[in-house]
């Protein structure tokens, strides 16, 4: 798994590449926790290049969403496609997260 972050005007964009599994997901937790501790509250997570996600990966995303909600922050998702989308659909996560077709539209809905 590789995580790229870039700061946009309205939010921090987190692009995840590769596999988000039981071994790699804690890396995402650490990175996001640090960003949130540093005061970032608005995020767009871009999953365009995510090849694989298991329940461990979803657990990390849910934990981050809950943490941000408790701080009045926002977590938006962009580009949930292909097999990753199937996993979201099976888990029911497709309906509880704020999901957008592109990073641009996700950023536009950050308020």
């Amino acid at each position: 798994m590789d995580i790229q972050t870039r700061k946009e005007q309205k939010a921090t964009v987190i692009a995840i590449t590769g596999r988000m599994d039981a071994v790699t997901a804690p890396e995402f937790d650490r990175l996001l926790k640090k960003q949130i501790d540093d005061g970032e509250l608005f995020f767009v997570v871009d999953l365009q290049n995510l090849d694989y996600i298991s329940s461990a990966g979803l657990r990390s995303l849910l934990a981050t969403a809950k943490l941000l909600k408790g701080k009045n922050g926002q977590l938006h998702f962009a580009n949930i496609i292909g097999t990753v989308k199937e996993v979201f659909d099976i888990s029911g996560f497709g309906s509880i997260f704020q999901i957008h077709g592109s990073v641009e539209s996700a950023l536009a809905s950050v308020s």
């Binding site: 849910l62 909600k69 996993v87 099976i90 888990s91 309906s95």
Partner: peptide, 22 residues
Amino acid sequence: DTDSDIMEREIGGLGVHFIRTL
């Protein structure tokens, strides 16, 4: 429960749900 709201949503049991479903 795959229908509940984000704050109520528990992750437990999702792994076995994937095993059954996939």
